[in-house]
Design a protein around this nucleic acid. Structure first.
Lengths: 192, 192
DNA sequence: GTTGAAGCGGAGGTTTGCCTCCGCTACAGT
DNA sequence: ACTGTAGCGGAGGCAAACCTCCGCTTCAAC
């Protein structure tokens, strides 16, 4: 949520301010935005986000001149986390590592809800974020392919979109989501 | 698009008017709405729909008092079609029948785009539509299960949500969508 | 043809969200 | 402690979409 020394955050447009109160507001906005985007999708009301964060609408616009700036900052934060997780799971067995990482991927609610709208987006930041996420997660998939556990006739982009699509859907409950995801991943796995 | 003698349409709220011009407008609205919903999701502008249909906004509201009436009418039409298709494919081999039906399911763009928002909806009409769709499509799935081609540890609702989720996502192109869908369906199939 | 009623359509009031602007506040450097 | 400036916040103007209402049009029954 705050700054961290990872590739993606360098690119991100708006910088966390230096003054103490301002920095607090910045963080509050990011948190509020993540919540709002998760709840209402990428179209969430900016005024509502400012209200949640307990700041004026002016403050929101100063930190994030456009809705896109805000959205991209939140998105970049999640991508960053995912990149870090990819490093953390690298020591597990191939398939285990991949599916652990995908489970984390599922947990990122902003991306989950908005990825459907944003995944085709051409903006520089989105592309950069996707790149670094693909660089972090892709090897996990390739490793699983090399070890013979993941099928060869699909690529990492296919996989991510599949998982994103499934997790963006409404389910009766979390159990159903997990069940469906497991079925789909069985399709990714080669002969069991 | 117009009236047809199938279960669901009985329940639908708004009736096609008798007068010739009125009936034409009604159909035009339904067509325009389907287009608009497919393009912009369930939040499409009603004024835009009226414009596309070449009628005044007042006419739209007379036929469909609320956005929901309109949406439900379009939805019901697609459900109807799907029910009919289910009968048509009944003579094919079990797995073939199921996947042929699902391919048609994928083609229904309104449902596809909006199902994610609507599939948990509690409205009477939605429930009724889902019921009749499940009654039409469910047997195809059960047949595939009995013949040993579909796994037993998931139900038809799981399957539909999985397919809906995947097809509602953005893909680079249709080829990718088909590829991903095929992978997921491989997960549904039992040992090949 | 006449005529009554069903249907039409869009002007306009209302709401909701976007974004700018500027007088006020409070931080941090000296 | 003082003070310049970065930062605050919300009033208010604008745009978009919603929905109602009512005078005009057009159908179809006779």
């Amino acid at each position: 949520m705050t700054a961290q020394p990872f590739p993606v955050s360098e690119i991100v447009t708006s910088r966390r301010p230096h003054r103490k109160d301002a920095a607090r507001n910045y963080d509050a906005l990011l948190t509020a935005a993540r919540e709002a985007f998760a709840e209402n999708g990428a179209e969430a009301s900016l005024e509502d986000i400012a209200r949640r964060a307990g700041v004026g609408i002016g403050t929101l616009y100063r930190n994030f001149p456009t809705r896109r700036h805000l959205f991209e900052s939140v998105y970049a934060g999640e991508v960053n986390d995912l990149c870090r997780v990819a490093h953390e799971v690298a020591e597990l067995e191939p398939w285990e590592a991949l599916s652990a990482w995908l489970r984390r991927f599922v947990g990122y609610t902003v991306t989950k809800r908005a990825v459907r709208e944003a995944l085709n987006d051409e903006s520089e930041i989105f592309l950069a974020c996707r790149d670094s996420m693909y660089q972090a997660g892709g090897p996990l998939f390739e490793r699983a392919q090399k070890s013979g556990e993941a099928r060869e006739d699909m690529d990492f982009d296919d996989l991510l979109r599949m998982v994103a699509g499934i997790t963006a859907t409404n389910f009766l409950d979390d159990a159903q989501r997990d069940r469906v995801l497991a079925v789909a991943l069985d399709g990714v796995r080669t002969a069991r």
